[in-house]
Write a protein that binds this DNA or RNA. Sequence first.
DNA 1: TTGAAAGCGCTAACAT
DNA 2: ATGTTAGCGCTTTCAA
Lengths: 354, 354
Amino acid sequence: MSDDKVIPLTKDSRTQARPLTLKDVSLASGVSEMTVSRVLRNRGDVSDATREKVLRAAKELGYVPNRIAGALASNQVNLVAVIIPSLSNMVFPEVLTGISEVLDETPLQSVVGVTNYLPEKEEQVLFQMLSWRPSGVIIAGIEHSDASRAMLAASGIPVVEIMDTDGECIDSVVGISHRRAGREMAAQIARYGYRRIGFLGTKMPMDHRARKRFEGFTEALAKEGIEVAAQEFYDGGSSLAKGRELTECILTRCPDLDFIYYSNDMIGAGGLLYLLDKGIDVPGQIGLAGFNGSELLDGISVKLATMDAGRRETGRKAAEIVLERNEEGNGAEHRRVELTPQIQFGDTLRRKGH
Amino acid sequence: MSDDKVIPLTKDSRTQARPLTLKDVSLASGVSEMTVSRVLRNRGDVSDATREKVLRAAKELGYVPNRIAGALASNQVNLVAVIIPSLSNMVFPEVLTGISEVLDETPLQSVVGVTNYLPEKEEQVLFQMLSWRPSGVIIAGIEHSDASRAMLAASGIPVVEIMDTDGECIDSVVGISHRRAGREMAAQIARYGYRRIGFLGTKMPMDHRARKRFEGFTEALAKEGIEVAAQEFYDGGSSLAKGRELTECILTRCPDLDFIYYSNDMIGAGGLLYLLDKGIDVPGQIGLAGFNGSELLDGISVKLATMDAGRRETGRKAAEIVLERNEEGNGAEHRRVELTPQIQFGDTLRRKGH
DNA sequence: TTGAAAGCGCTAACAT
DNA sequence: ATGTTAGCGCTTTCAA
């Protein structure tokens, strides 16, 4: 970006002074406000004649209902609060997509809040969201401050925690066990004969899910008598460049690694590209695996091993639970849905020496 | 994903029957509702003693204000509606990030609606959003249905159209001229001596901005007496894989191309990786350029030429305009902010034969 | 099938 | 510094 031209326009508009109300439509159509309300919501019995009249009047005036008032009167808010740590990591937009897919067929609508991985911010965002009295909350992770948990528990609305099943949930939960994901990847790597294994991931306090994968990973390796030979942690967002840099770094420190496990596909792909550039044989000399199952990166000639965390599916399921919990009478039980990701071997994880 | 275990829990909660109201806090603290309201909003003069009392009572009870009621009473909704075509293209989350950065310091909060590039869906989403009486609307693009334009114009709230300045705006606009972006890239490519130029992009009716870039591109080439030698269009999302595939495709049809202009960096990078894999000399044999300035892809060894569309900046500016328009008294003019993207040459665009 | 009255929970505006 | 009153625009409930 260079200079920004700022050109104030002259034309003067801001047409409307007061937004229209039901009353305006009532007057215009010669029908009581109540009946107008009924027509606009398709509720109760209204004769076709009046329905016509009302609809026409509303359309002609350009009436837009005031949901604030409607929500207050009916004590019903068709909003679902969705709270996620970030929008920069595609994982979360993908979950949102799953949620929208399901909610789009219903009167419910999602509202997104972003926490930047900060518990304090999460608390604020949550408070803000709850103050709109949404029909449900879908929130990433199961680690929350005491205050957040208290708010959620007390809210009396369905709460679905997503993307992590390792721990106690407040109400319902959908996701995968990251400990198990880490364990299974470690087991597979060990089974394939790798022994000098490095790990590369985000700084852990930020990201509980990455931490749990790492814990599961080291735990399972330990069971095979293997210790992680080297590890490297980084702050901030993941990018190909970061993956490159850290891979170079870890291999300088520890050139005899025969495998690197990355905490996500983005840095994994960066590492992969780096190794390919260097002419290093992958997975002959060194095997690699990431995490997420990012289709985004599928076009790299050598496909990185990974594990699909089922983000779309998670979003869909979470939305379905909120819906289910909103249908009164229905069993409306607490739910625990654990998705089981499979290893995708790609081209970078195969039996050593094969 | 394989089988999903669905384990209904047994514990029974849904604690609270009726959410707390101001009245509850009033009773608990022995202070009038009005004063409680004042304390909770930091408004007017309240003695430190009563403030303390109220705050303590509110905290102990776990009171969460009901904004629905507050908004109705005060006729003030601190929501900004943000309407975008998609979350799958990182461009939009990046704009959202810019918006949030600015709004986070204010009482305003953004609410996102997604249109899937469908004008009809845009209309619905817009109607939904407007029914919440937001303090402003930030909407991607300047092409909208008549009904949408009418709603926006009649809403009486600030409307900022973003990411495209090629055309008439309703109220204010922030973004770049995609025609100009296309023209400038074409001019540069021509200046550098390329003559057999291909274009690769999304199907146009979907994406006005891509279309305008293409139009600007062909127009500027025409001025140099050059015609686009081959073009390839695709549906659906952009990915590295798609870029690969289409690049192979266009080069099969037209093997003598010396340049390919891609409608975004993702497919551009896919093409780049394909050519590198094939051992083709880039840019010696064929030059490449994309669009967006995606930092995401920075880790590829050969850096794709591109143009930064200033997404964060666009989001920030749009949010600032909404804020400005909400400060009464202030000039509150209509604004037109045209950002001017610069070509980033990377490694794939240089004078032919150098 | 339609209408009238009474709030929803909060805040603006006005007392005190 | 605090309290009282009267709505905000809609829907629920009850009556016709």
